[in-house]
């Protein structure tokens, strides 16, 4: 259960933080204390036993901390020296500052009172941490949509979403029963049962444009349009802008010598990706896709020459 490895340093750090936490939560149940510190109850007993031996020089009962934890509830006395919480580390400050940025951007407009409080708090923290302006996070998803989906997950309800399919470039409305939110690389996805397609699907959170709760799942099955489930083998030659190509096509840098062999799962993605590389990459195979890129480019070029 413990996330961090047990080094003397990490345990010391935990024990130092335990004292003020106990002072603020006298009589806390041992199990919930262990949970708050992400350790097992046994580990917490070991921590408390170690702490019990500590105190001011002299180390007589008068100077030692007074801990009681045998009844399953923990209290602490005679620990004034350590009873104030420790200062935030720079990493902790940055975590809170970046988090507050998102809070500030996500508060509803009518709560200008909270906005003022959050902004003042952010400035105060930044100043204390010697980080006056240097950190900033942008929210890339809509927090109202997240909240609606999270609510649907916990209430086991369905939502109607409008969703932008990037490769097909269409916006569709679907009824989904969201099951969980998970993160893949840098993107947040909703894993859901899509009532409109009658199957489990993953949706990119930042492409959900709207979400509203619906009473009962509307079990109207839509035709399954263009499900491109089989993979396409393609061969790519990179002519310039190497880094852009590596990032766009997720190429392993070790494979950069010569032509690149990869697989795609969407014809539309492949065509769009090659077009938007603006000539920095060339699709060698498959031949049909190559021809269709040539055709699109030539048609567009003629339009520019005549308009």
């Amino acid at each position: 259960m413990a996330k961090t490895p047990q080094t003397p340093i990490s345990r010391t750090s935990r024990l130092l933080d335990l004292v003020p936490y106990l002072a603020a939560h006298q009589g806390i149940e041992l199990n919930s204390l262990a949970k708050d510190f992400s350790v097992t109850a046994n580990q917490m007993v070991a921590d408390l036993t170690t702490l019990w031996m500590c105190g001011l020089p002299g180390y007589t009962p008068l100077e030692l901390m007074d801990l009681s934890f045998d009844s399953g509830y923990v209290t602490i006395h005679n620990a004034e020296t350590l009873s104030k919480p420790r200062n935030l580390t720079s990493e902790e400050s940055i975590a809170l500052l970046l988090g507050l940025d998102l809070v500030v951007q996500s508060l509803p407009e009518e709560r200008s009172d909270l906005l003022a409080i959050a902004t003042a708090l952010r400035n105060k923290l930044a100043e204390r941490a010697n980080l006056p302006s240097p950190v900033h996070a942008n929210s890339s998803g809509d927090s109202a949509i997240r909240t609606s989906i999270l609510h649907a997950i916990s209430a086991k309800k369905s939502v109607e979403i409008s969703y932008h399919s990037l490769y097909a470039d269409v916006i569709t409305s679907r009824v989904i029963t969201p099951l969980e939110i998970h993160i893949e690389e840098t993107h947040e996805n909703v894993w859901a049962y899509c009532e409109s397609a009658n199957s489990f699907r993953s949706f990119r959170m930042d492409r959900v444009l709207e979400s509203k709760e619906v009473k009962a799942p509307a079990r109207t099955s839509h035709p399954n349009h263009s499900s491109e489930s089989h993979s396409i083998d393609f061969v790519l030659r990179i002519h310039s802008r190497l880094r852009d190509a590596v990032e766009r096509f997720s190429i392993n840098k070790a494979d950069m010598a010569g032509d690149i062999h990869k697989q795609a799962y969407s014809q539309q993605w492949l065509i769009r990706s090659v077009l938007s590389s603006s000539g920095a990459v060339e699709l060698i195979a498959p031949g049909m896709t190559r021809e269709s890129i040539a055709l699109t480019a030539a048609t567009l070029l003629r339009k520019y020459e005549t308009h």
Binding site: Y21, A23, D36, S38, S93, G99, I183
Partner: peptide, 24 residues
């Protein structure tokens, strides 16, 4: 603010910061 880091890079730091704040 701390909860926003769930599962992300500074999750541990955010949680330990939160413990300190809750000790106030």
């Amino acid at each position: 603010a701390a909860e926003a880091w769930r599962g992300a890079a500074l999750d541990d730091a955010a949680q330990s910061a939160l413990l300190k704040l809750r000790s106030m």
